[in-house]
Write a protein that binds this DNA or RNA. Structure first.
Lengths: 201, 201
DNA sequence: CGCGGGTTTGATGATGCTCAAGCCCGGTGG
DNA sequence: CCACCGGGCTTGAGCATCATCAAACCCGCG
């Protein structure tokens, strides 16, 4: 049953779309045909800083992260993308400039790749699709603004507690050094903060 | 000439839309009719934290900012919006929850207000309009990501220099305390940083 | 002139970084 | 089966950056 093999690749995507717009089965068929399925192993890179980002990446299963490295060798993770999330470097994807980010699989993952061109074609073919992406982007903006607020107004401990509040599951899937690089603190500080918090309860 | 009076109110908006999508004169007429023009004086508030945000606000002339206040009384400005920019609290606008932000005019300004409902109606009436907003949001995300990167990886001085590089005009229109609250540093630190920088040149 | 908001300057202190060492644990090869 | 890595996490000491608090300054405006 070769068809089956591909079907499972879009369960999460279908959920993501149906929760935001009305779309017919034919629409999904159109979408499915245009996206490129891809499996990656743990630690595999989907984008290297310096290259042009070619795809929006949808995660059907697994976990990716995007991050930049700065001059002194440390990393800053911009985003984690578990099942049901899109990840990309839009700055590079849309302008075709070299990306400042890397995208890396933190777990063995099943992905769907969509180039900019395909994205445009699909939005022409499925009239409601721009609304889908618009809704995605709106929510993304809300999340990014919240993150800026947290980073700017909170101590390391508060930042960590906020993350636990919003994404408690992350801690089970992501190493603490990656969490630290997401929060903008060092692994050492994160370790001390966590000690404080647990000692207190 | 009452028509003239309203016409000038959408020069910037028309530029903003035409630079992103193809739209006919009738489209602009439809859009113009649905938006609410509003003039505000300096220091007037368009949104108070705790209220539900009702509008996306487009700035035809002038300058707005959105900011949150935290427990200890200090402010964190999220965004400056000069001519040609949209500003809002989308988290509140879309979910109808009380906003955590204030929006305030820093200069006497001319605005166009668009409620969520009108936004939806317009996107139904002008087929390319979702693409317009999508493009706006994409660019907004790129800017927010860049900002997170800057805040997390740079010193106070580097953060300030980066702002000068990206928005050099801001300094002429915005008080230093507001700049500081945008950068996430205190006015004192900003003052010292600026002294360093000028002494060096 | 004197008031007041915004900015500057100075002194002090806290938060979180750096560097360095040790620990824990799972994986590998002898 | 066990010894030995090696990566990730923890712990510690010293230090840099930036916040805080307080005072002075500057300048436009009533």
């Amino acid at each position: 049953m070769p068809v089956r093999r591909k079907q499972y690749m879009k369960v999460e995507l279908e959920k993501s779309i149906r929760s935001r717009i009305k779309a017919s089965d034919e629409d999904f068929e159109v979408i499915r045909k245009k996206l490129i399925p891809k499996k990656v192993r743990k630690r595999q890179f989907l984008l290297n800083a310096g290259d042009v980002c070619e795809y929006m990446i949808f995660v059907e299963r697994g976990l990716l992260r995007s991050f930049s490295d700065d001059k002194d060798g440390s990393e800053h993770t911009m985003q984690f993308a578990p099942e049901g999330w899109w990840i990309s470097d839009m700055a590079s994807l849309f302008s075709r400039e070299p990306s400042k980010f890397n995208i890396e699989a933190l777990e063995e993952s099943e992905l769907l790749l969509m180039s900019k061109q395909v994205m445009d074609e699909l939005m022409d073919m499925v009239p409601q699709l721009p609304r889908y992406f618009l809704n995605l982007m709106e929510n993304h903006i809300i999340a990014l603004q919240r993150r800026i607020n947290v980073v700017q107004s909170m101590s390391a401990e508060e930042t960590y507690l906020k993350l636990m509040e919003i994404k408690p599951d992350l801690i089970n899937r992501v190493s603490l050094q990656h969490i630290a690089s997401y929060l903008g603190i060092t692994p050492e500080t994160l370790s001390r903060v966590r000690k404080q918090v647990t000692n207190r309860t």
